[in-house]
């Protein structure tokens, strides 16, 4: 900021009066345009110019693909040969495709492990961090580190940790005389392993979110409860959890979307196996499009997957809202 501008800025700030109505403020030119009524006679030409790139870009890169998705759904197309109309063929195939339902089942299984783990660990660590402690910045930063590291690094790292012969997890089990486990090769366990890894990768973000939420809870609530003789558990159940409801909702939605976006982890670690136990929707979509050249069917899977996400998030919101009442 130029010094002269800064001076003006503070000058105008001083011009603000207490108790002014929005209309009065608007008339004095203190409110942004968005809150002012739009006079029909004058329009800012710069406005059109400034949004034009965004509008063009959105039409080309979101609007058109969106519309084209609905064309693709009814076709069979490998991009290179002419498109072939298949009517409802793709949709019929989807409904009886064991693999897409398998992918959906896998994702739900993933979420059933991932979400509770995520909530418990994140809330627990956030509670601990929310006390008077030294080195909070350090702890927070170390929990957050996996969040910023790219998913592929974490995946390669954990693939080594989970390795049957040489992985640290199995080495640790051997130290305490337990048998090795096929973390990524046993069809009953592979998805659990991925869910644990995903939790490790993401939990730092939720620790920070919960910490922000906890710090926003006014301390007098706890003080009042203490006067009433509430136990720590009661305080947690009756004050902390309800006050954190929006954050919990947020964590739920974010982890759900994460779960439905699972791709790089199974792609690198398991290729969707063993016996399709880690196949995810996006991996299946990718396979259909890029291994089998079926753009129409892949688009149908994408549409189905988007629909499911939408529904699941809606249901979650409903559930959390009823909980809150």
């Amino acid at each position: 900021m130029q010094p002269s501008e800064a001076k003006r800025f503070s000058m105008w700030n001083r011009g603000e009066r207490k108790g002014e109505s929005r209309r009065e403020k608007a008339e004095r030119g203190l409110l942004p345009a968005a809150f002012r009524p739009l006079p029909s006679q004058s329009a800012d030409r710069a406005g059109y110019l400034m949004v034009l790139p965004y509008v063009i870009h959105t039409v080309i890169f979101i609007g058109y693909p969106l519309a084209f998705a609905f064309v693709l759904i009814f076709h069979r197309w490998n991009i290179y040969s002419p498109m072939k109309w298949v009517g409802l063929g793709n949709i019929k195939l989807l409904l009886i495709d064991p693999l897409i339902w398998r992918a959906l089942g896998n994702t739900i299984f993933f979420l059933l492990i991932h979400i509770p783990l995520q909530l418990i660990i994140a809330l627990g660590l956030a509670q601990l961090l929310n006390q008077k402690i030294r080195g909070r910045t350090f702890f927070r930063a170390s929990y957050f580190l996996p969040v910023v590291i790219s998913g592929i690094v974490v995946t390669i790292l954990w693939q080594q940790l989970y390795a049957y012969e040489t992985g640290l997890v199995n080495l640790a089990l051997r130290e305490i005389n337990l048998p090795r486990v096929g973390w990524l090769t046993d069809p009953r366990i592979a998805m659990v392993s991925i869910a644990v890894m995903a939790t490790w990768k993401n939990v730092g973000l939720y620790v920070v979110l919960f910490l922000v939420g906890l710090q926003a809870i006014p301390s007098h609530l706890y003080e009042a409860a203490e006067l009433d003789g509430a136990s720590s558990w009661q305080k947690f159940r009756l004050i902390t959890v309800p006050m954190l409801n929006p954050t919990i909702m947020l964590v739920l939605v974010l982890s759900t979307i994460n779960g439905f976006s699972l791709f790089i982890e199974p792609y690198v670690m398991t290729g969707g196996g063993p016996v399709s136990s880690t196949l995810s929707g996006i991996l299946y979509l990718y396979k259909q499009a890029f291994f089998f050249g079926k753009m129409g069917y892949a688009a149908t899977i994408g549409f189905f997957w988007a629909l499911i996400i939408f529904m699941v998030v809606l249901i979650q919101r409903r559930v959390v809202e009823t909980e809150a009442v």
């Binding site: 890169f61 979101i62 058109y64 693909p65 969106l66 084209f68 998705a69 693709l72 197309w77 991009i79 439905f260 976006s261 929707g281 996006i282 979509l285 499009a289 753009m295 892949a298 688009a299 994408g302 549409f303 997957w305 988007a306 996400i309 939408f310």
Partner: peptide, 15 residues
């Protein structure tokens, strides 16, 4: 709009 919905048509467009 979830990315899953547009990623394939977007890809065909890029091609």
């Amino acid at each position: 709009v979830p990315a899953q919905l547009t990623i394939i048509p977007l890809y065909t467009m890029i091609v």
